[in-house]
């Protein structure tokens, strides 16, 4: 009897090690980060509710004019049945190709943002494989910023993909709620899951103010609520307020100051001439 106990224990131990060791090996390899960045690093643009894939045309034109480049612009719409329709071009040779990811169903509301984040993730999987990139920067206007935030928290795989800079323009993290003490369900959820946000993320949240309270559509307090999600979590969280001409919610993407901000913080091409007159709050 005793003679058999030792080999038995040994075999059980070996089997145990085989099963769980394999699990570790598997996990370890899945977590291995590709050591090299892809050469292509696109800038993903996500429009807000009611906006189509043409939302950023004016902004990209202005950016190309300012930086004296002709970066390509690819416009992708994700349909409700998950298929993608393309227009425009993608030229990897250009420094920063732009990709707009818009949604056929572009309605407002938390339940729709959840759906859009899922569509967005689906589009990213396909686009990153098709155009071979593993890092990107993203700009979201209005609800587009919410979609990007939810994508980072729910679908983003840090082992396969890296995000360099995220800029949200007038994104209402607390919807139309002006009182910060009243957190909407979405804000509560986003704060709850903020541990998934990459710690190396550089984040800018831009707010426009037509008067002292809002940009005509989104309350300033709601944009400011983003700090509860990103502050102390992302590597950098900077909130920027833009005032003056063209600061209504819908004009913001092509607002000259914001275009300068994108050029400076997302494209990392600083213009020596024109410094935007901005008020930076940390």
């Amino acid at each position: 009897m005793l003679k058999w106990i030792r080999p038995l224990i040994l075999f059980v131990l070996l089997g145990f090690m085989a099963v769980f060791g394999l699990q570790w090996t598997h996990q370890n390899m899945r977590n291995a980060i590709p050591s090299a960045n892809s050469r292509v690093s696109p800038i993903i643009l996500v429009p807000g509710s009611s906006a189509t894939q043409e939302r950023f045309d004016a902004m990209v034109n202005e950016l190309n004019g300012k930086t004296k480049t002709s970066s390509s612009l690819l416009k992708v719409t994700v349909h409700t049945d998950n298929h993608l329709s393309y227009s425009g071009t993608f030229q990897p040779g250009k420094s920063h190709p732009y990709i707009v990811i818009a949604f056929q169903n572009n309605h407002d509301g938390y339940s729709n943002i959840k759906k859009q984040a899922k569509w967005f993730s689906h589009a990213m999987t396909i686009l990153s494989a098709k155009y071979r990139f593993n890092h990107f920067s993203a700009i979201g206007h209005s609800n587009g910023g919410l979609v990007l935030t939810r994508y980072l928290e729910k679908y983003f795989n840090q082992q396969k993909m890296r995000i360099n800079t995220l800029m949200t323009i007038a994104s209402p993290y607390n919807f139309s709620e002006t009182n910060i003490d009243k957190r909407t369900q979405m804000l509560t959820d986003l704060i709850k899951d903020n541990s998934k946000i990459p710690t190396n993320l550089v984040m800018y949240s831009v707010a426009g103010t037509e008067n002292y309270n809002n940009d005509g559509t989104v309350p300033f307090a709601s944009v400011e609520a983003g700090k509860y999600i990103f502050q102390k979590r992302a590597k950098n969280y900077t909130q920027i307020t833009v005032t003056g001409e063209d600061t209504t919610h819908h004009d913001l993407p092509q607002n000259g100051e914001i275009v300068s901000l994108i050029q400076q913080y997302v494209l990392n091409i600083s213009s020596t001439k024109q410094k935007p007159d901005i008020n930076v709050q940390h």
Partner: peptide, 19 residues
């Protein structure tokens, strides 16, 4: 594949080939 340290020898090829 990278295998855990001190894996019993008989399991090394098995784990190294991801099972």
């Amino acid at each position: 594949y990278v295998i855990p340290y001190a894996t019993p020898s008989i399991l090394r090829a098995f784990l190294g080939t991801n099972g």
